[in-house]
Design a protein around this nucleic acid. Sequence first.
DNA 1: CTGAAAGCGCTTACAG
DNA 2: CTGAAAGCGCTTACAG
Lengths: 348, 348
Amino acid sequence: MSHFPKPNATKKAKLSDVASLANVSASTVSRVLNQPDIVRPEIRERVQKAIDMLDYTPDRMAKALSSGRSHTIGTVVPTIGGSAIFSDGVEALQDELETLGYSLIVSSSRYDIEREFQQIKTLLDYGAAGLVLVGDTFSPDALRLIKKQGIPTVTTYTNKSRHGIPAIGIDNRAAGRELTRLLLKLGHKKFGIVANTALQNDRSQARLDGVREALAEAGVPLPLKNVVEVKLPTIENGRRGLAGLVELQTVPTAIVCTTDALALGAMSEARRKGLHIPDDLSVVGFDDIDVAAESDPALTTVKNPAAEIGRIAADYLNRAMNGQPIPLETELPASLTIRSSTAIAPAR
Amino acid sequence: MSHFPKPNATKKAKLSDVASLANVSASTVSRVLNQPDIVRPEIRERVQKAIDMLDYTPDRMAKALSSGRSHTIGTVVPTIGGSAIFSDGVEALQDELETLGYSLIVSSSRYDIEREFQQIKTLLDYGAAGLVLVGDTFSPDALRLIKKQGIPTVTTYTNKSRHGIPAIGIDNRAAGRELTRLLLKLGHKKFGIVANTALQNDRSQARLDGVREALAEAGVPLPLKNVVEVKLPTIENGRRGLAGLVELQTVPTAIVCTTDALALGAMSEARRKGLHIPDDLSVVGFDDIDVAAESDPALTTVKNPAAEIGRIAADYLNRAMNGQPIPLETELPASLTIRSSTAIAPAR
DNA sequence: CTGAAAGCGCTTACAG
DNA sequence: CTGAAAGCGCTTACAG
């Protein structure tokens, strides 16, 4: 058994300790910390020495409280774990924020808008100086709160700004079109879709819309039954989705899944059912998570540049917090990544 | 272009606003917030009404500063993104902390001990009330800092407590032995290892030790050349590792990779080289990340219960912060998960 | 260029 | 059961 705090715990040195050791006022210590040029070199060095001796580091909390500006940023993503793309974005976001001098509080809403609102509220209570969200669909309460506090906020994985919140991401709809056109070009006419749109997921909805658009353009019908809507973009749901599609009267030859995880599940289930990919069935996903290239066959998908999105989000927030304007919509290229899970449609 | 703060931004209500609206002192408002039973029902309701009207939520920062106890926890993991197991642990950790009333600041050290130390320092400056780390190898500076501040700290993904820091995880060494014994039982005698131990990764080192132990037990030699050490546990390094092992004079029939990502890369590369898994080559990994079950063939591995680790870490921290003792070593079961990437060794 | 004083938004003994 | 006052560890006008 272990106990805290340890008996040998020492209290941290504080600014006033440095001040007395250096024989200066607190104000002066604060200055050498924040605007060293302003203080006489001689004194500056003396204070610096005291800082080093005491191993002093300022309490960011007190600093934030008194200065009115904190250096913590909050983010709410649908999920942090699993095989979703967001963890890559969070990693890049944290990384970039760290170099800019910010810390990141993360929370995952589990694709729940209400929960997202609660988490935003908590982040604000924690004094977050900026917010990084996902998508363009928010609870009215959340929007009101954000507007009310006027805290710098950006949203990610979408290029559409719906509420004045700057957006950074790919054009999901265009990506859906592109992937579909590829399949059409390969001769596919019977499509099946597995889409995690049941929980009003705006990114997947846009992707689905893009698919529909491209199909309509080409005059290829998409019966209602051929679209399986699921809640969460899990591998398991990909399995289930495919299982359903394969039992249709006319079995699709092309399966579009709105995330890679769904596609991996769909491929796995297809294999289990004795279907050969891509000869019997072409499968595509979205995002290009890092395992997408390693499945067998390797998955054809559209790359969602999560790391870049994370970095840009950090930079925009930093700029906004310095009073600089930032673009309302930043569209990143979504590169079509053709691998081995797609092929010419099988002869009927 | 977008600007912050919005012109219509309103300042948050504060405790004193509630106090004047309810015609009571600040102390009283504070009490209805923190120990409602102590205050007369009549007044309590009046204050509550004022709180609701103003939509007041206390500033956690000020609260932390004045009370001396914060509700933010910090974690440093080797990586948040990619196909590592940690994001699942972070998700569960955050989840559980949220229900306990804590927020989580995360940072990723990129498997760099020095960077980890800096991040711990930052977390402490941010007033973290507790720390969740990974592994049992820390920089001396980090250890000194943790001891000095006496802040509740737990470490994860290992069952060994090396510095008095409570550990929660599987017995990686035993897991390595178990996986190896499985392969030995299948008749394998020529082993190849891909281990991310180049960066003094204690978990993978323990796994490797376990492999060595089981082989020694069985009298099966493991030539130096048959162990490829890599830095990061990436899919790409798995590829490279396998490429090297396949060029040995006597090609191994069993490949042990110290993480699933490495194993996925190894399998992918083996396929590319025309080797059939598991007929020509058995491959195993560690962790059982969620895509491990979906690769073709599905990966034989050992489950690392990341979500449970995260939850327990949260609970232990919570207990420690309430002055309760917590176990120094908590070993979680690492269940062997046999799938299709392993088979009887091919006849020589 | 430096210091004394007030203040950030809370909590917490201490009186009453 | 309630309030006035001091304090948490900083920053920031304001004097000097």
